[in-house]
Design a protein around this nucleic acid. Structure first.
Lengths: 228, 228
DNA sequence: TACGGGATGTGACTATTGTCACAAACCTAC
DNA sequence: GTAGGTTTGTGACAATAGTCACATCCCGTA
């Protein structure tokens, strides 16, 4: 892929929107362009983490397998997202896997290249710090959801997190299976099903051919804030 | 307090152990020394976050109140810990409160000072990035614990997190009340009590005059890894 | 030493959610 | 179009943990 195309893709996403030419050029020069098929692992839990990825296109799922086999989906990443920065920074193992859920491309940057870029461009570090701040906020809000709310409000939150603002018919960013929704929201597949059925009767969501649509966004937000 | 005393305290803690003289000097020069009584709030959830704190002495509890009133303890911070960096970085509200649980002192650094120090000392940003990486790891492991494990293994994990390596008699870093342990481990006070009683019978922990001691560290670790 | 407030111990009951089982529907590829 | 896999729908039941209620204990202080 041409450097200018890469530059275009990067510049289109918030994180890199305010990068200057030189920064983008360095990222592209020092990065490797990678492509993945649906199902490929971009990052594997437990591996040593010596590189950082910037997702250029497609969607990927970030998930952990707990030691008892339980799968936990932490996030769904789209283009522009930085992945794998934690292990790169602290030299530890990768805490989670990242799996392409559709054909995906990414820019891979080694630790050496990353350190050089960081040293050369002051703003890069600040940008990364902001990314990580928002990650911590997200993690805290997951903890809050898990701890303080019952399954209903919690599922509502995750559906809202998957919703796109101006989507026609309330379509979600991703069409997840009910099992996958379960791993995301932290509840069993069966329970997801029952909850969606209930909401479907109340016209809050619609479930057709396995796809969830949000019909009553306001109501769902209200449920997400419920006292229990 | 004298600058050299402050420098000593800072240099004694891992995060700042590898700071050079100039960095320490700038931190101290630009920081304000603050003191807090037990129960004082160093940081208040919902406030705008325009400063960063470095804990110099004492212990503080980081906790969130969910919108339904549920209290969640995220961590207990000790000297050397950086607090309040998230809101400082992204300009948002403070996500959690930090409360002194004993007399505490801290160095407060404003956004302007922080930005100057960051610009002047390259390594500062890298250090902060590492701190935040470990925060994300911690948050992910809380999510894993909440999602994948039942209360027993989970409580075991939190007790281990509070344990100190060479402590005589298995004393914990902090003597928490059972309600507070509950807010930390995400379970009710009563359930904490019952679980501790059971373990106490099996000589895994001892509970005397409200203080928990870990008798069988190995067994507790084993429970923490249990399949369910 | 007596008092009062907070922390702890414990029983009984309830609520929420997971698990298992199985049928039906759907999709995809030959 | 049909076979085989995956996904969905749903009932019955079990398990885990929360809630409520109340007795008790402990500790600082007047």
């Amino acid at each position: 892929m041409k450097a200018e195309e890469l530059a275009n893709i990067l510049a289109r996403h918030s994180l890199f929107a305010d990068c200057d030419e030189a920064e983008l050029a360095d990222l592209i020069l020092r990065g490797h362009f990678l492509q993945f098929k649906k199902g490929d692992e971009l990052i594997m839990q437990g591996d040593p983490g010596n590189s950082l990825l910037i997702l250029l296109s497609g969607y990927a799922r970030t998930s952990m397998i707990a030691s008892n086999g339980h799968e936990i989906v932490l996030d769904y990443a789209d283009a522009g997202q930085v992945l794998g920065e934690i292990a790169l920074l602290d030299g530890g193992e990768r805490t989670a896997s990242v799996t392409a859920i559709e054909p995906t491309s990414a820019l891979s940057i080694t630790r050496e290249a990353f350190e050089e870029i960081l040293a050369k461009h002051q703003n890069m570090a600040l940008r990364l710090l902001k990314v990580m701040a928002s990650r911590i906020r997200m993690a805290n809000s997951m903890i809050e959801g898990d701890r303080a709310y019952t399954s209903g409000p919690r599922l509502a939150r995750y559906l809202l997190r998957l919703s796109v603002v101006g989507a026609e018919g309330g379509r979600l960013k991703l069409d997840l299976s009910q099992s996958e929704l379960g791993n995301f929201a932290g509840m069993s597949r069966e329970h997801i099903n029952r909850q969606l059925s209930t909401w479907s009767e109340d016209q809050i969501v619609a479930v057709e051919s396995g796809k969830v649509r949000i019909l009553d966004h306001a109501m769902l937000s209200h449920i997400a804030e419920a006292d229990s």
